[in-house]
Amino acid sequence: MAKITFIEFSGTAHEVDASNGMSVMESAVKNMVPGIDADCGGACACATCHVYVEPDWLEAVGERNEMEEDMLDFAFDVRDNSRLSCQIKVSDALDGLVVKVPEKQF
């Protein structure tokens, strides 16, 4: 179990409970967090679940995988802390994770 906080572009925060093994994207969709579109449903095929991981959490979250790196080419305003939330698996180690949602998934 982990508590994950999504901060919308407007600054509104949403704290959700996520079970281990699910993806961060799924925890957002399940709790109807605005701004995580996840058009492809988690197949790492669309880049519409783009998030910015808060710097303190980058290490715990780990590195992008190769497929995700390719997919991020389809996102806008990609930064060093950009991740596709469908590729981050929830675990106890991510309890307290904070991610920011971009202004627009496109």
């Binding site: 058009d39 669309c46 080419d73 389809f74 496109f106």
Partner: peptide, 9 residues
């Protein structure tokens, strides 16, 4: 300018 960022539905 020609931006190629894939397709969307």
């Amino acid at each position: 300018m020609l931006p190629f960022f894939g397709l969307t539905m």
